[in-house]
Every structure is written in C-alpha cells, then in structure tokens.
C-alpha cells in the first residue's frame, strides 16, 4: 500500500513536502501501524501516538482529506494511495505533529469543571439516572481535536470562535444537574463569536472518531440561551 506523507522539519526544510512510502499491508492493520512501519523505514518521521486504541486521542491526523484517529482507522477503509497530513489550520511543529495550544486555550475558556455556589456537602452530590443520562454523548470527548480542526469557522476565527470541542464541553457542564454556574456559562458565550460562529456545517460530526455530535450540543446551548432570554 502506498502512502504519501507530509514531511516538514523546520530546522532543515525551507518548506513542507510530500514523501512517498510503500508498506506491506497485514490483516487488521490500522493507519497507526502503517505510520509505525513508515517510521521503521525512516526514523526521522515524527507523529504523536500513545494508547493505540482510540482512548488517549493523541494520533489525530488528516487522512485523504478527513480528520481521523490513526489508531482506529483500518487501512482497508482507506483509498490507496493514502495521503496523510497534519491537522489543517494548526501550526506544524514537525511532520504530523501540530501545535494544539490554541485548542486547549479555547477549552480552558469554558471553565471545564463543576462549579457549586452552595457549600459542598459531606457526601458526593447524587444524581437521578435521568439526570445522569443528560451527560451521555457529551462526557465521552477525548479532546483529540479532530472536530475543531475540521471546522471551517474554527479555521477562520480560531482565536475568537471556541470551536466544536470546547462548545461540546460547555454543553456538558450546562447539562450537569450538579453544576450551578449555568447563568455565568451562558453569559460567557454571548456575542457574535464564541458560540454563534457555528453555522451548522457539521464537519465536526463527520470527523468525531467517538461518534459524538458537537453540532447538536451547540444547538442545545442556543436553545437554553433562547429559553433564558425570553
């Protein structure tokens, strides 16, 4: 199977280039295995990876034009030759490794932790099964960045639009019965940029390797806002 891989080493290359590799395909091989095989051929080739089973969210890359986690992308589902690039719109550090600081800064902006105004009880704060169900489809995010870096609105305004990942997290805390900072959270999302740059393009939904739906979460935040405003 042929691979065209994005290469860039800022210390030696004046500009990025694509390099061809050929690897022998084995049964059950994922893209991460192929990248490791490429690394055996050329050990200067750099990419992030860790758990290898779609849990840590380290090896998000752009494959044949769409963002995927390399470790859970079967080679049999990819078109030969496979074009592997770093996430679009992020500064490249080296080869497939990109700088995700802005992505984490946006996540930080939604205060991604539970906030209580009442004093904390001695025991844990209980939830009914129904209240717990509200968090399904929101808490599973592994922050791989596949969604936000696939979002055109995030490409145009990454400094002002929070992006699908951070907004999914915002929704996760708005939906949590134990959180008491809903008002403040909504206030922080006002204005034309942070939330409302989302034009329901839904690239995030297509990209999410965990099958989550940030567009739906964003719609849910808008609905809560509207309900609170009238």
């Amino acid at each position: 199977m042929k691979f065209s891989v994005y290469r860039y080493n800022p210390e030696t290359d004046s500009e990025p280039y694509m390099q061809m590799f050929e690897i022998e395909q084995r049964q059950g091989m994922m893209l991460r295995d192929a990248l490791l095989a490429i690394q055996e051929q050329d050990e200067s080739f750099t990419f992030r990876h860790s758990c290898g089973e779609g849990v840590c969210g380290s090896d998000g890359v752009n494959v044949n034009g769409s963002n995927k986690l390399a470790c859970i992308a079967p080679l049999t589902e990819l078109k030969d030759p496979v074009e592997v690039r770093p996430f679009p719109g992020r500064p490249v550090i080296r080869d497939l490794v990109v700088d995700m600081s802005q992505f984490y800064a946006q996540y930080n902006q939604v205060d991604p932790w539970l906030q209580r105004k009442e004093p904390l009880p001695e025991q844990e704060i209980l939830q009914t099964p129904e209240e717990r169900d509200q968090l399904d489809g929101l808490y599973e995010c592994i922050m791989c960045g596949c969604c936000s870096t696939a979002c055109p609105s995030f490409w145009w305004n990454p400094d002002k639009f929070l992006g699908p990942q951070a907004l999914l997290s915002a929704c996760r805390f708005l939906a949590d019965s134990r959180d008491q900072a809903g008002e403040e959270r909504l206030d922080k999302l006002e204005g034309p940029y942070k939330l409302f740059r989302c034009h329901t393009i839904m690239s995030c939904v297509e990209a999410c390797p965990k099958g989550l739906n940030p567009t739906k979460a964003i719609g849910h935040i808008k609905a809560i806002m509207l309900k609170e405003a009238i």
């Binding site: 006002e190 204005g191 034309p192 939330l195 409302f196 808008k222 806002m225 509207l226």
Partner: peptide, 10 residues
C-alpha cells in the same frame, strides 16, 4: 445579564 446582544438576537 444581557443575552440580547448581537449573538443570540441575530
């Protein structure tokens, strides 16, 4: 508490 600004209203 102003939610009437440019985002939601637009």
């Amino acid at each position: 508490m102003s939610r009437r600004a440019s985002g939601l209203r637009a």
